[in-house]
Design a binder for these strands. Structure first.
Lengths: 128, 128
DNA sequence: CTTGACCTTCCAGTCACTGGAACCCCTATC
DNA sequence: GATAGGGGTTCCAGTGACTGGAAGGTCAAG
């Protein structure tokens, strides 16, 4: 399988797949002409990484998850630990964004949004 | 005022203030010895930028807000428009994160998290 | 006169790609 | 055989918003 085919099947840009090779997540074979040759194993890894990235896992977490995925003697506790840590990060980000959302929507409500210069949003931003 | 003093007062790292000068958000005077000299105007701008960044506005939005802040003939409608656009971005990010949170917490619940290798989290990630 | 805190510039690294240039390979058609 | 196109390859640079560190200049106190 060429990179174009695996790109479609894993739903990842070819550039991204080359990048994943660069950083050592995958190691596809090479043909005589220099083209990468992907087998089912590499495709599965790419699908796996794509899903993990879509859940917001960082590259180092993907690396760890991939290692566990390939380790028949893994303990599911290890996977769960990584997932729970990530869940906490997500919750912190959501909390941050919700705090911003609350403040900002209050300010937007307070702003007339007309042709006059007076603006509670700017007032709040410049308040010390 | 030296950069250290303004750093404390605006609650921004000195490195960040220098960076803001690099990208043209502020233009403090220079003393004979090469040190930056900050006045109240520059301090106010930095406080303003700090608050805008804390609400998640990007640098180009900060630039636009700062220009409006300094424009006596502004219309609050312009400020409100920028703020509303940003609010939408925040809402999209929250929605993304909540989707991840939902999927991930379901998977975590389904995972025994013990010494056995079977793991619904890995199963889901590798599913095509 | 030295110490230490503060200031300066510049370069490199972060994260996870992404865009572009320049070039090679393979197949099909004229 | 020439050519056109749609693959593929490498390498370099840029993104956003800083951040760390090195190497060195400045200033006030003891």
């Amino acid at each position: 399988m060429n990179i174009g085919e695996v790109s479609k099947r894993a739903n990842l840009p070819a550039k991204t797949i080359r990048y994943y090779e660069d950083v050592g997540l995958i190691s596809p074979e090479r043909r005589e002409n220099g083209y990468r040759e992907f087998g089912e194993v590499e495709l599965n890894k790419l699908v796996f990484i794509g899903h993990a990235r879509a859940l917001g896992f960082g590259m180092s977490e993907c690396r760890d998850l991939l290692a566990l995925y390939e380790d028949d003697a893994r303990e599911s506790a290890e996977v769960k630990k990584i997932a729970r840590n990530h869940l906490v990060q997500i919750e912190e980000k959501i909390a941050d964004l919700q705090r911003m959302h609350g403040t900002l929507s209050d300010l937007i409500s307070a702003c007339a949004g007309d042709e006059r210069p007076n603006c509670p949003i700017l007032n709040q931003l410049s308040a010390s």
